[in-house]
Amino acid sequence: MKLSMIIPCYNEEKNVELFYERVKEVFADHNFEYEYIFINDGSSDQTYEVLKQLAQLHKESNITVLNFSRNFGKESAMYAGLKESIGEYALIIDADLQQDPAYALSMMEILDKSEEWDSVAAYQKERLEGKILRSFKKTFYHLINKISQVEFVDGASDFRLLRRSMVEAILSLPENNRFSKGIFSWVGFHTYYMPYDVHDRANGKSSWSFWKLMKYAIEGFVSFTTAPLRLATMLGILCSFVSFVYLFVVIMEKVLMKIEIPGYATVICLILLIGGIQLFCVGIMGEYLARTYLEAKHRPLFVQRNKIDYKNMK
């Protein structure tokens, strides 16, 4: 098997068949074996029914469908797809046709021509989001590259082609709280960054919102750097130092200079300031502790309700 396509699906009932037809069209003149691995990530529409019908109608097309028991998120879907894949190359691609399957041929050509590269990652030439979202993403990449030990390339997406050796390295990482952009960088290997143009969604709306992106960004910070914990420590040291200095000043004014200090407003302000900093630091530690707690449970990344496997249909 030359290529395994991992296609996470969440409410894509109107897109999966279009995606299948587009792949058939693009690969029609190329003689290599490939498989589809669709992951139905707990869709609330008819995505699974459409995928089931697609697999039954096209038994010759190497279609596997993994059906999750509920929505576990794209990270789990990608992991499940990589685990199921058997191809020499594994392609992670969305089903909404924003990422044209035609780019896969260019990616494969890069890996075929040079053993220097272990993966090809696509990045957007021009972002289509609004200014606020673009600014938010730029700030995220700037900050995380300042404090993380691994490099995050601005604009690099999950749309990428991986050699089997890199797939095995990614699957060897056992953590449940996964942030794939960081994992792709952490495992090392040589990645070629290829620009691509994002198309409009064929149908439907994106499930990503600003708050989901914010949550995803926090996951990235917590998963790949302990700098926030060090920040909490430094804030504690700074507040302690300022408090001791202020205490010394108050004692000098009271004892030596005989200055009466009302102090009510000052005390309230200090209590609020220090209390706020303490809560902020406790919140940072709580983020790390929560993930430690979840990892200690050793729960699976996903629960598979059922599976349609082309290998058992032929």
Rank of each mutant, 00 (worst) to 15 (best):
L97D: 15
A77M: 04
E35K: 01
I6G: 03
K297L: 13
T64L: 06
Q46P: 00
V23R: 00
S185A: 15
L128T: 11
G283A: 15
R230Y: 11
D154M: 09
E12L: 10
K59G: 14
G236D: 07
S85K: 06
S157E: 14
L279S: 11
I284K: 00
G81T: 08
I251M: 11
V267I: 13
F19W: 07
T225S: 05
A55C: 07
F32W: 10
G275Q: 02
A265F: 10
S85R: 03
K74Q: 12
W208G: 03
D197G: 00
G275V: 03
Q99T: 02
L294S: 08
N40V: 01
A169I: 05
L171V: 11
I259F: 12
G42M: 03
I218N: 03
D45P: 01
K24D: 13
S76A: 15
D200Q: 11
F210W: 01
G87W: 05
Y288I: 06
E21R: 10
P300Y: 00
V282T: 11
R70T: 04
L105A: 07
L272T: 09
N67C: 14
L279P: 06
R230H: 11
F302G: 04
E115Y: 08
N71I: 02
P262H: 00
M78R: 06
A90K: 15
L231V: 12
N203F: 10
T266Q: 15
R305H: 13
V50E: 15
S207E: 12
P300G: 03
F280C: 10
Y196R: 02
I93Y: 12
A156T: 07
L82E: 08
F72V: 10
E33M: 03
Q56M: 15
S172F: 00
I218C: 08
K138V: 12
Y123C: 09
F241N: 12
M1Y: 00
G130P: 04
P195E: 03
G155S: 10
E21S: 12
G188E: 06
K146G: 03
K297T: 02
G130I: 06
S135Q: 07
F136R: 09
